[in-house]
């Protein structure tokens, strides 16, 4: 019996092998986010190194990723830096994405928000160290006025959160927008840790009820 069968190697274009799907039309408006399934499909292709798919993935999510970073960081230049880093991380970690654990869009925004939060905390820590050693206080954020997001923009994101009770909203906003840990939130509001975690959970569950069908 001979087993010396030599198989010809025929490299094929990845996109045509992994998926026959065609890109959706270019998007028209910033808010025109495609269905989650399309973005999931794109991320599958990004995971095997498809740069063209990554470009489309970027187009779908750049507004949400940048907006999330901006909302937390409140400085356009730093927000752009963080959003860029977040996209590069998505490119590098696309193969870690597990669709069973969440949609691509959710995964992307988790990465963007985490990076924004980490950035704010790092700057806070530096600021505290600086204060300690110099005895004088540096401004919390030294942005010039026109780089700071105005209140109108900030108010715009309140729609979904308005469905929450004041206590739930307060706990979630301090964490999500102010980059506080739940311990810091509990300290700030002077309530037990368990209470804060419950408010966060109940608030998120409620948020999902009111927004779930809309954008996700």
């Amino acid at each position: 019996m001979t087993t010396t069968v030599r198989l010809p190697v025929v490299p094929m274009r990845l996109a045509s092998v992994v998926s026959g799907a065609v890109y959706r039309r270019a998007r028209v408006q910033p808010s025109d986010i495609s269905s989650s399934a399309d973005i999931d499909e794109l991320l599958h292709r990004v995971a095997i190194g498809d740069r063209q798919a990554f470009g489309a993935f970027y187009d779908e999510l750049s507004g949400a990723v940048y907006g999330t970073a901006l909302r937390v960081i409140r400085d356009r230049a730093i927000a752009e830096e963080v959003a860029q880093d977040a996209f590069v991380e998505m490119w590098q970690k696309a193969s870690d994405w597990n669709p069973a654990r969440g949609k691509a869009k959710t995964w992307a925004l988790m990465i963007a928000h985490r990076r924004a939060v980490d950035r704010v905390r790092r700057e806070e820590a530096m600021r505290r160290r600086h204060e300690k050693t110099t005895l004088w206080s540096v401004p919390h954020r030294d942005n010039t006025a026109d780089e700071v997001v105005d209140d109108d923009e900030r108010r715009r994101v309140r729609r979904g959160l308005d469905a929450l009770t004041d206590l739930q909203r307060e706990a979630i906003e301090l964490a999500y927008f102010q980059a506080m840990t739940y311990r810091e939130v509990a300290e700030r509001l002077d309530v037990p840790l368990g209470t804060i975690k419950t408010r966060m959970r109940d608030g998120l569950v409620r948020l999902r009820e009111v927004m779930g069908g809309e954008s996700l």
């Binding site: 940048y66 909302r71 654990r101 869009k105 927004m211």
Partner: peptide, 27 residues
């Protein structure tokens, strides 16, 4: 998975057009 979706919806509501030059830098 469920709670992350809710958290992501806060981010989606914050959507702001990214600077035009950002895509080129990322790519």
């Amino acid at each position: 998975a469920l709670l992350l979706e809710a958290a992501a919806s806060i981010g989606l509501e914050s959507e702001t057009p990214a600077p035009a030059s950002m895509k080129g830098s990322v790519m």
